[in-house]
Amino acid sequence: MRIPKLSKTQKTILSILLVAVGFFVGNRIFNHVSAWAGVFIIIIMAIILIRLIYKYVKKL
């Protein structure tokens, strides 16, 4: 089965959704499993979000 190619808009929406889910998962891990692992996941998601915002502002 072949995976269809995504448009730029779909990639952007998927990336934002991934970051939102990542923050949620990081928060859950922080609260229930390990604080350091949760902080690590949240920091990684923040870096990805900053990168997405930078790419968007750079296009303008």
Rank of each mutant, 00 (worst) to 15 (best):
V21P: 06
K5E: 15
W36C: 02
F30A: 06
M1G: 14
Y56H: 10
V39T: 11
A46V: 06
I53L: 15
N31W: 01
K58I: 02
T9D: 09
I13C: 08
S34G: 04
K55G: 05
G26L: 07
K11I: 10
I29G: 03
I47F: 03
K58M: 05
T9R: 07
L49V: 00
M45R: 01
M45Y: 05
F30I: 07
I13W: 11
R2I: 13
Q10Y: 03
W36K: 06
G22P: 00
I13V: 11
T12S: 15
V33Y: 04
I16T: 07
N31T: 06
K58Y: 14
A46F: 10
L14I: 12
M45V: 03
K5A: 11
I43D: 02
L17A: 14
I3N: 08
I48C: 10
I48E: 06
V19Q: 10
K58P: 01
F24N: 03
K11M: 10
K8C: 11
I13S: 05
R28G: 06
W36A: 06
A20E: 11
K8Y: 09
M1P: 11
I29H: 00
K11Q: 13
R2S: 12
I13A: 08
H32D: 06
I13Q: 11
L6F: 02
T12I: 10
S15L: 08
K55A: 09
G38F: 02
F30P: 03
I48R: 05
S7Y: 00
V19M: 09
A35P: 04
H32V: 00
S7F: 00
G22D: 06
V21T: 15
M1I: 05
I50W: 04
V25H: 02
I3W: 06
Y56V: 09
Y56P: 00
A46I: 02
F40Y: 11
K8T: 03
G26W: 03
I43A: 15
F30T: 07
S34W: 01
K58A: 14
W36D: 12
P4F: 02
W36F: 07
Q10T: 09
F40K: 07
V21G: 14
Y54K: 09
M1Y: 15
V57N: 13
V25L: 14
F24T: 13
L49T: 02
V21R: 09
L60R: 13
L17I: 10
P4A: 04
K59R: 03
S15F: 14
I44H: 01
G38R: 04
F40N: 03
I41P: 00
S7K: 02
F30K: 14
V25K: 11
S15Q: 11
I50H: 01
N27I: 09
H32P: 00
K55M: 08
F30Q: 12
M45H: 04
G38H: 01
V25M: 05
I43V: 14
A20L: 15
I44S: 05
W36N: 09
R51Q: 11
